[in-house]
Amino acid sequence: MTQLTHINASGEANMVDVSEKASTVREARAEALVHMLPETLQLIMSGQNSKGDVFATARIAGIQAAKRTWELIPLCHPLLLSKVEVQIEAIQAENMIRIESVCKLKGTTGVEMEALTATSVAALTIYDMCKAVQKDIVIGQIRLLEKTGGKSGDYKVGI
């Protein structure tokens, strides 16, 4: 098993030194699923939510969150992201919204946390905008789908 990289020899939390790592193109994709009642999903799809365009607001929130991950997650490095994309789709047959984010850069550390943060905050934004009509919306299956670049190699979830 690989060692935890954020723990030093004394067992203390520590920010990883990436100054000697090679700069490579790194990309990560993540997803989140938001389950709700059919009526709530229909309200979103019809544009009748009193707070405004749910998908547009969640998309912007996800992008902003990716750019600020280093402020939210201890020990994350501040990154100069070259791309952040958040796609949101309704899956009406399952009363669900699927959020997928892509983050990319050329640098010395990965962007998995940025992609996961983007999807998480987009999902939380959907909840916030719809909680007045449904309190028991379920945010689930936040996961890394794929990552490329870096010393540890590529990863793709087995779907």
Rank of each mutant, 00 (worst) to 15 (best):
T2D: 06
T5L: 14
H6P: 07
N8V: 12
A9E: 15
S10G: 10
G11L: 10
G11K: 09
G11R: 10
E12Q: 14
E12I: 07
V16G: 13
D17F: 04
V18L: 11
E20Q: 13
T24N: 01
V25K: 12
R26C: 03
E27C: 10
R29S: 03
R29G: 03
A30V: 08
A30K: 02
E31D: 11
E31Y: 03
E31R: 13
A32Y: 08
L33W: 08
H35I: 11
I44P: 04
M45L: 15
M45V: 14
Q48A: 00
Q48G: 08
N49Q: 07
N49S: 07
G52D: 07
A58D: 11
I60A: 07
A61G: 04
Q64Y: 05
A66V: 07
R68Q: 15
W70N: 03
E71C: 05
E71Q: 11
E71A: 13
L72V: 15
L72P: 04
I73K: 00
L75F: 14
C76M: 10
C76H: 06
H77V: 03
L80A: 15
V86C: 12
I88G: 01
I88Y: 06
E89P: 04
A93S: 15
I97Q: 05
E100R: 09
C103G: 07
C103E: 00
K104R: 12
T108I: 05
T108H: 01
T108L: 03
T108E: 01
T109S: 00
G110S: 12
M113Y: 00
E114A: 00
A115R: 01
T119A: 10
S120V: 12
S120R: 01
S120A: 15
A122N: 07
A122T: 06
A123M: 05
I126T: 08
M129N: 10
K131A: 09
V133A: 08
K135G: 11
I137E: 09
G140E: 15
G140V: 15
I142R: 09
R143W: 02
L144Q: 04
L144T: 10
L145N: 07
G150T: 05
K151R: 15
S152T: 11
G153V: 01
G153T: 03
D154M: 05
Y155W: 13
Y155E: 12
K156N: 09
V157N: 06
G158P: 02
